[in-house]
Computed example of a mutant assay.
Amino acid sequence: MAGQPTAVLRPHVLLCMAALAAALGGTVQHANAQDVAAKPCAVILMHGKWGSPQFIGHFGRRLEPYCAVNAIEMPWSRRRNYDIPYPQALKEVGSQVQALRAKGYQRVVVMGQSFGANAAMAYMAQEGDADAVVALAPGHAPAYMYSNGIGKDAVHKARELVKAGQGSEKLAMDDLNQGKRQSIRMSADVLWSYFDPAGLGHMPGTAASFKKPVPFLWVIGTNDPLYAAGEDFAYRKAPDHPASKYLVVSAGHIDTPDVAAAQVLEWLRGLP
């Protein structure tokens, strides 16, 4: 149906929306149906470590000619400071995905920058119900931190406490973000969920665990520390899909989304 005039799409979409509204007890409104007819794509957009939705808002607005964009605050924001475990954070994302489906969006994309990219991949591994995944300048590497001794003792302690049923005990550790360290304090179960070197934060593992093949866009800048790892680090481990793409741009870790915005939008428009 891509490329058909809105006037052609609208009667069909409104009919589908009416049926959906009846099935959901009338919760879908006519205005939402019009939005869906105009924008066939919806995006859940997640920010990076110690950031906020505002940090990626400009990029999100550049997608809005084609997609409805919902930028959400994640537990690794500066304000929330790791307030819930990683699996629960992904359940929060799932609630947003389901809300967009209830509005009638047929394509829901999970997308993020840095830690948000890590979460988009983890979401596809845990929940697996997104229609596409976009990883912009992927970040948060607990295996790298662990192998370099950053927070290693705290991770060991967290693992033992969780095994002993004492996951609520508080621990402190150093967090790492693009070469900068920051002391953080959280419960053992939360710490273990984010910093387990083989857990949900380990991108090679989550890419290999996507619950189904979906279009997967990996966007990396030539000045990003992860650029040297190449396609084999995680991108090639995801299930093959003909619309997947490894996109390289001339940018660093922070500015990759804005530099790549036009190409990301083009990729979204071209999905089958």
Score class of each variant (00 low, 15 high):
Pro215Ser: 00
Leu171Trp: 05
Pro197Lys: 06
Arg159Thr: 11
Lys163Val: 10
Gly221Ile: 05
Asp189Tyr: 05
Asn177Trp: 14
Lys212Asn: 09
Gln182Ala: 00
Leu217Asp: 03
Met186Glu: 03
Leu176Met: 14
Pro204His: 11
Leu200Pro: 05
Leu161His: 10
Pro215Gly: 05
Ala164Val: 11
Ser193Glu: 02
Ala208Lys: 03
Gly199Cys: 04
Glu160Met: 11
Ala164Thr: 10
Lys170Gln: 15
Val190His: 00
Gly199Thr: 01
Trp192Tyr: 14
Asn177Cys: 15
Asn177Lys: 12
Gly167Ser: 15
Leu200Cys: 07
Ala208Tyr: 00
Trp218Thr: 10
Phe195Thr: 00
Trp218Met: 07
Asp174Thr: 07
Gly165Phe: 13
Gly205Cys: 11
Val214Lys: 00
Ala198Glu: 11
Lys212Glu: 09
Gly199Leu: 05
Phe216Gly: 06
Gly179His: 10
Gly165Val: 15
Phe210Gly: 01
Leu176Ser: 12
Asp174Gln: 15
Ala172Thr: 06
Asp189His: 12
Pro197Tyr: 07
Trp218Ala: 00
Lys180Asn: 02
Gly167Thr: 13
Ala188Gly: 06
Met173Val: 14
Ala164Met: 13
Ser168Arg: 13
Leu200Ala: 10
Asp196Gln: 06
Ile184Ala: 04
Tyr194His: 01
Lys170Tyr: 11
Asp175Glu: 04
Leu217Trp: 01
Pro197Asp: 12
Val219Lys: 05
Lys180Ala: 04
Pro204Asp: 14
Gly167Pro: 14
Asp175Trp: 00
Gln182Ile: 02
Met173Lys: 15
Ala208Val: 03
Phe195Ala: 10
Gly179Trp: 11
Ala164Gly: 09
Lys170Phe: 12
Gly179Thr: 07
Pro197Arg: 08
His202Ala: 04
Met203Phe: 02
Met186Gln: 07
Gln182Gly: 04
Leu217Cys: 08
Leu171Cys: 04
Arg181Gly: 04
Gly165Ala: 10
Pro197Phe: 10
Asp174Val: 09
Met203Thr: 02
Val162Asn: 02
His202Phe: 12
Lys212Asp: 13
Thr206Glu: 02
Ser168Gln: 15
Arg159Glu: 15
Gln178Trp: 05
Pro197Trp: 11
Glu160Thr: 09
Gln178Met: 14
Ala188Cys: 08
Val214Leu: 14
Met173Pro: 06
Gly199His: 01
Gly167Asn: 12
Ala172Val: 00
Arg159Ser: 14
Leu217Phe: 00
Glu169His: 04
Arg159Ala: 12
Glu169Pro: 03
Ser187Lys: 01
Gly201Tyr: 08
Gly167Val: 14
Lys211Asp: 01
Ala188Phe: 07
